[in-house]
């Protein structure tokens, strides 16, 4: 298992010590998990939903959008100027 690659996929900066310790730990967890392969599940359906629900629709009207919840949510953002949320450039090669 390539922990460095996985960390890249999961957007996690890891220290060399962390990479080394996860290598061993994840290996032994996966070894344990491999007992699942003993079971023949060819004919078994996947349990996709914890509860039998079909599409739950509601009318396409805004609801639950209280202004003060919006205000409080904005306050949690790391960097903003008034209502504008500031983030770094999303695309490579751009600085702003």
């Amino acid at each position: 298992m390539d922990i460095t690659h996985l960390a890249k996929l999961a957007r996690l900066a890891l220290t060399p010590e962390e990479i080394q310790s996860y290598q061993g730990q994840l290996g032994s967890i996966l070894q344990y998990v491999d007992t699942l392969q003993e079971l023949d599940t060819e004919q078994v359906p996947e349990l996709q939903h914890a509860i039998e629900v079909t599409n739950v629709f509601r009318l396409d009207v805004p609801e639950g959008c209280e202004m003060d919840v919006r205000e409080r949510s904005l306050k949690n953002f790391s960097n903003r100027s008034e209502d504008l949320l500031k983030v770094q450039a999303v695309f490579d090669g751009r600085t702003e």
């Binding site: 996985l6 996690l12 996966l30 699942l36 078994v44 359906p45 996947e46 349990l47």
Partner: peptide, 25 residues
């Protein structure tokens, strides 16, 4: 990391879908 591994290309069937079937059992 464990979840990212089990959901990554090439491992999804062996881990995630297998575990969903075992959940049915």
């Amino acid at each position: 990391l464990l979840g990212s591994y089990a959901l990554s290309a090439g491992y999804y069937d062996a881990y995630y879908r297998k575990a969903l079937k075992v959940r049915t059992l």
